[in-house]
Deep mutational scan, measured.
Amino acid sequence: MSIQHFRVALIPFFAAFCLPVFAHPETLVKVKDAEDQLGARVGYIELDLNSGKILESFRPEERFPMMSTFKVLLCGAVLSRVDAGQEQLGRRIHYSQNDLVEYSPVTEKHLTDGMTVRELCSAAITMSDNTAANLLLTTIGGPKELTAFLHNMGDHVTRLDRWEPELNEAIPNDERDTTMPAAMATTLRKLLTGELLTLASRQQLIDWMEADKVAGPLLRSALPAGWFIADKSGAGERGSRGIIAALGPDGKPSRIVVIYTTGSQATMDERNRQIAEIGASLIKHW
């Protein structure tokens, strides 16, 4: 067993022997301040990774656009098919120029040779490549099948209805392509620590998230040296922004954090800054 596999296998073990965790309302004060600064709703939840206990939450059962955070769930569904012998990570998928959609920095470079399922998941999570996500959605049967996968996990809230990039439209009061912070946090925890996926697939999923290259201005910008984070960000229309993450000190994750916002007129930089400040408060009061 590799060191990384050992780390993920012992996530519940280490967490069980940690000192009790206590909620700190100071972080919620910052979440509410972010709402004021952005002029928009902000949803927040913080779960203990081992027990699933909610440590703090704000608007945990209000719907927010998922945006690209759905790509972690998508690759979880792909990995479940791999575990069941219905898919192979090494299978190569070929596609054409007509398949390319807006923001496809990886797939646009491989029109000639195609990409493997493993490479597509890596591109979808680490670079948020939209064509990679659409190609992977095709392998599982489309958005409705991802929703069905989530329902089978016990998540009857999260739903995907459309493809990239239309799913980022974020129309107010439109339930399409949305989740709730509580539902997303619980589902992410199941994917990373539950028995739904094999140990190898859980490790692969967290490795992809740990290698995320496009979430630097968010929670990662607030992390002290030595902290662990595996995350996936999302951005959408109407001032929408979000991030889902597993993080913790001492090089291992111990909490799940989900943050979503929508309806702001603020710039992307300002949305990023507010999420980073929430992260800084979380870490300060850990």
Rank of each mutant, 00 (worst) to 15 (best):
V42M: 10
A148I: 13
H285K: 09
L146E: 01
L167G: 05
L167W: 01
T107R: 01
N173E: 14
K32H: 12
F58N: 15
P65R: 02
L49K: 04
I93C: 06
V31P: 01
V106F: 07
L55C: 08
T69N: 02
Q274S: 10
T198F: 07
S233R: 01
K144M: 12
E35K: 03
F6Q: 09
V31G: 02
T126A: 10
K109T: 12
I140L: 10
A34L: 08
L136V: 08
E210K: 11
Y44H: 03
H94F: 13
M1S: 01
V106Y: 08
A225N: 15
L136T: 04
L73R: 00
I256D: 00
I45F: 12
A40C: 08
V8W: 08
L120M: 11
R273T: 12
D113H: 11
E195R: 11
G52R: 05
E277M: 10
R159E: 06
I54G: 04
C121E: 01
R92D: 06
L74C: 05
I244W: 00
R271W: 03
S80Y: 14
L79V: 06
L38R: 05
S96D: 12
A222Q: 14
K30E: 07
T187M: 08
L219V: 10
R271Y: 03
D269E: 15
K109M: 14
A280P: 01
K232E: 00
A16P: 09
T107G: 05
E166S: 13
A245R: 00
R238V: 09
G236K: 01
I243L: 10
L74I: 07
R159V: 07
T262R: 08
E169P: 05
T179H: 00
Q86A: 13
F228Q: 06
L219E: 03
N134Y: 03
E119L: 03
D129C: 01
Y95P: 04
S128N: 00
A182M: 15
D174S: 07
H151F: 09
L196M: 13
R241W: 02
G248D: 02
D231I: 04
E166A: 13
L111E: 07
Y44T: 02
L197V: 05
R273K: 15
R41E: 07
A235L: 05
E270P: 03
P224R: 06
S233K: 01
A133L: 00
R238G: 11
I206M: 14
S201W: 03
I3F: 11
G242Q: 02
R189N: 11
T138Q: 15
V42L: 13
Q88Y: 13
T186W: 15
D129P: 00
M127L: 12
N173V: 10
G251M: 10
Q37M: 14
S80G: 11
L199K: 11
P12W: 12
P65G: 03
D161V: 07
M1N: 01
R220T: 03
A77H: 10
P12S: 12
F70C: 08
G76A: 13
G242C: 06
S57Y: 11
D33Q: 15
M153Q: 09
K32V: 11
S80Q: 12
S254M: 14
V21T: 10
